[in-house]
Structures are given as structure tokens and as C-alpha cells.
Nucleic acid binder design. Structure first.
Length: 404
RNA sequence: GAGAGCGUAGCUCAGCUGGCAGAGCAGUGGACUGUGGAUCCACGGGUCGCGGGUUCGACUCCCGUCGCUCUCCCCA
């Protein structure tokens, strides 16, 4: 055991794990570029208030999961627990609303939540998030879900996409009222936490996992039955588009999200095998305004890169490796051969191991080289190298170009 | 924040009801100084997570602590 260790929930990403991580990351990034999202790099630290205002004072994230601290001037700062808050702040601060009628952004990077680590959960983890600012059109919600679906399909992930609408400031208050009233009638069957939530945040009772709560909530009034005309229209249009695009989904009237800023569409892609959300998102039509910007509707999603990586078997396919094996006193020549091969775009490992040909071939084998490039006295004298196919064992003599 | 299990070589692990710390793989060297992907031989490597306690004696039992894994809560 080494003297120093990384912190709980903070880990080094390397080897096969890194390859799977990178594979997922590049898949998602590639997809977002196809949809013409523009990348931005956001700060990892913001004023605490940015998160408190956007995510919501009453949420678990804000109440107990943030890495918050004071800087030297006594200001309260926090490591970002998610990306949307910072993206919205950046959107407003840089006045992106003035440049185009709508804006499509994505970002990738570490997020921090002070929680107990477990399968697919870390204190520092990575998300790729995408946000569309400036359109209320359900077409946008549909495209966001389409991206999510395509990502998951390409990974062959066994996942269900669940959707719901949680209304807007017109229709949600009456619904909350109705739900609270109902919850009072079944209070005897609710867990302690839910009794507490019944008044303050009744929506959250809907996705409580305690069996008795689940049971008690089955007959509860549903948000979808309370949607105002605009929200109902939005929701049914979204479903039409999803059907048009052949995207399978399941309506889950009990789906709510842990963050306060959502309106209308919310969705989650839940892994069937792991029972965790891999990708989630939704619409947040008031957040930009609440954060001090002009009224601007928005939709977005975030993927947990480590979580998605759990489902990936393959890694990144790498270019074939050329293991350059010098034997004898031919290092000068070996350097030139390596230079020549690399200038042709080949991935070359020049063996640093001073040993006989046999040992170095063993090394080449262990490093998974596709080819061994043999360079000895004979090769140097004839200005060529010997290319050995490590699978078939066939060898060829290849002239070095005169330029070298 | 609450609960359970686990920390022994670089890795995977064995080590009995307390009694000299082990194996496989990896590494290094080598009859082979121009031919590998299971040839052979030899060698190195340990604060048994850390601290305390019990004991003649602790890898083993007890307490604490740190870390890992998992569950609950919650979430990506």
C-alpha cells in the first residue's frame, strides 16, 4: 500500500477502463457533432449560488451532495455537481441569446457529488451534456431523445427510455395541490420521508422506491391528466415525433426528476441490468430567466460516461502496432527507420529493451504488435528493414526510401 | 448519512481451532548474440492497509481508523 492514496470516490482512469471510457466519450461526441452541437468548455468551479438557484434549494444535490467551500476571500464556491447550471450561466453571461435565434451547446468534463461511491457512481465522475436554448418546439425534445436513443443503440445497451411531462407553471400548481390532497388520504401507508415530502415536494413521492409508497401512489392523480392545453399539445406532439422516428419509449407517469428546474418533458434511459439511469434530461423553460437572462426555453440531457462505459465490452480499435526491434549495435539506424515509418503514419514502438532478438520478439508479442520491424547489422548494411507479420510469421525485406 | 462484506508479493488469490508468510501469473537474469505467440533453469520481491489491545507468541482474536466493493437514500 502506497503512502498516498486518492480520495474516496476519486479514481485514476487507466488501462482497459480508460479505453472503454474513451470509446463512449468519442461515440457521444461524434453523435453530437452530427447534430451540429457546438462544444464549450465550462469552469469546474462556480459560485455556490449558481447551483443553489438553478438546481433548487430543496434538492438532495444542493442539501447534501455538493463539494462547497470558501475561498480566501470568504466567498462560497462549489465544484459543479452537474453541467446545466454552468451552461445556463455561460449562455447568459456571454449573451449567446443575441447571436442566433437558438443555440446548441455541448460540454464534457468532470462533475462532483459528495456521495457514497458504489457501482457506476463516483464522487468525481464525467458527464457529457447537451443543451438547446431558445426553442419551445417539441421537435427539439424529440431530437434530443433521438440522440440518446441512437447512442444507446450503437452500444447495444439494454435500456428503456421513459418519458413523462411534468407540466408548466400554469398546470403544475393545481396538480401539486391535488396530489398533496390525495397523499394526505394515504399518509398511513407512506414512509417517513414521503410524509415529509407530501406538502413541500409531493412530486418526489411518486418515484419513492419504498414498496408501500409505490403501492399507495398507484391510484394517485397523474400529471398527464392535469396538463394545460399547451403542455398536453407539446407532449402529444413529442410522442408523435418519437413514433415517426421509430424510437421505442415507455410513458411513466411517475417519472419526476431530482432537480427543480424541469418543465414539460422529462426523460430517463434506465439500464435494465444495472437499474440505474444512464442518460437523463428534460426541458427547463424558466431557468434562463430565473438566472437573470431573457425568457428562453431550453431542453437538454446529460450522460454519465462511466456508467455508459459499464455496458461497453469493446475498447477503442487502435492502429496496428509496429514494434521496432533493434539488435546489435544499430541504434542510429533504428532511430532513422522509426522516423521513416512514423512519417508514413504508422504507430511505432521503438523497443527500449536492450536484449537479443528472441526476448524482444517476446516483448513485441506481449505488447500486441501486429508487425515486428527487425533492424540488425544486415539491414543497416543493405539500407532496408525486415517486416515480420506477428500472426503469420511471414517476413519481407523492405527498402528504406532513398530520402532517408 | 445508515447497513453488510473485504484489505496478504506488481496482479489473482491460498494460509485450518493463534506457532518459521506461500502458489500461479507478471518481472529480472540465463546453456540460445538473427526469430516470438504455454521449452527449460535460476533469481528478486512482503510494514500481511494503518494504529492500539489481548497473548509467551497475532496474517489469524478484539477495538479504532483509512481504503475498496455492495445495499439503502439519491442520482449520471
Amino acid at each position: 500500500m502506497s503512502e498516498f492514496q486518492s480520495l474516496r470516490g476519486f479514481h485514476d482512469l487507466l488501462g482497459e477502463e480508460f479505453k472503454r471510457f474513451k470509446y463512449v466519450s468519442e461515440l457521444v461526441r461524434g453523435k453530437l457533432k452530427l447534430y451540429n452541437f457546438e462544444e464549450i468548455v465550462l469552469p469546474v468551479v462556480e459560485y455556490l449560488e449558481v447551483f443553489r438557484r438553478s438546481i433548487g434549494e430543496a434538492t438532495d444535490i444542493v442539501q447534501k451532495e455538493m463539494f462547497a467551500f470558501q475561498d480566501r476571500k470568504g466567498r462560497w464556491l462549489a465544484l459543479r455537481p452537474e453541467g446545466t447550471a454552468g451552461a445556463v450561466r455561460a449562455y447568459i453571461q456571454n449573451r449567446l441569446y443575441a447571436l442566433k435565434p437558438y443555440t446548441k451547446l455541448f460540454y464534457e468534463g468532470p462533475m462532483f457529488r459528495y456521495e457514497r461511491p458504489q457501482a457506476g457512481r463516483y464522487r468525481q465522475f464525467h458527464q457529457i451534456g447537451a443543451e438547446v436554448f431558445g426553442s419551445i418546439d417539441p421537435l427539439v425534445d424529440a431530437e434530443i431523445i433521438q440522440i440518446v436513443y441512437e447512442i444507446l443503440s450503437e452500444l447495444n445497451a439494454k435500456v428503456i427510455i421513459e418519458i413523462n411531462s411534468i407540466g408548466c407553471k400554469v398546470c403544475r400548481p393545481p396538480y401539486k395541490e391535488a396530489l398533496s390532497t390525495y397523499l394526505r388520504t394515504v399518509a398511513g401507508h407512506l414512509c417517513e420521508v414521503c410524509i415529509d415530502r407530501s406538502d413541500r415536494n409531493p412530486l418526489r413521492v411518486l418515484d419513492c422506491k419504498v414498496p408501500t409508497c409505490k403501492e399507495a401512489v398507484k391510484e394517485a392523480p397523474k400529471m398527464v391528466d392535469f396538463l394545460c392545453n399547451e403542455c398536453r399539445e407539446h407532449y402529444s406532439k413529442l410522442k408523435e415525433y418519437l413514433t415517426l422516428l421509430s424510437i421505442p419509449y415507455r410513458e411513466n407517469p411517475h417519472l419526476v426528476r431530482g432537480l427543480d428546474y424541469y418543465t414539460k418533458t422529462v426523460f430517463e434511459a434506465v439500464s435494465e441490468e444495472l437499474d440505474v439511469a444512464l442518460i437523463a434530461g428534460g426541458r427547463y423553460d424558466y431557468l434562463v430567466e430565473e438566472m437573470g437572462g431573457p425568457p428562453t426555453p431550453a431542453v437538454g440531457f446529460a450522460v454519465g460516461v462511466e456508467r455508459l462505459s459499464l455496458l461497453v465490452r469493446e475498447g477503442l480499435t487502435e492502429d496496428p502496432l509496429y514494434m521496432l526491434i533493434p539488435f546489435g549495435d544499430v541504434m542510429d539506424y533504428a532511430l532513422l527507420v522509426a522516423k521513416a515509418l512514423r512519417s508514413e503514419g504508422k504507430r511505432v514502438e521503438l523497443s527500449y529493451k536492450r536484449a537479443g532478438l528472441k526476448k524482444q520478439l517476446e516483448l513485441a508479442n506481449r505488447l500486441g504488435a501486429k508487425y515486428a520491424v527487425l533492424v540488425g547489422e544486415e539491414e543497416r548494411a543493405g539500407n532496408f528493414y525486415t517486416l515480420k507479420d506477428m500472426e503469420t510469421g511471414h517476413q519481407l525485406k523492405i527498402e528504406l526510401s532513398p530520402a532517408m
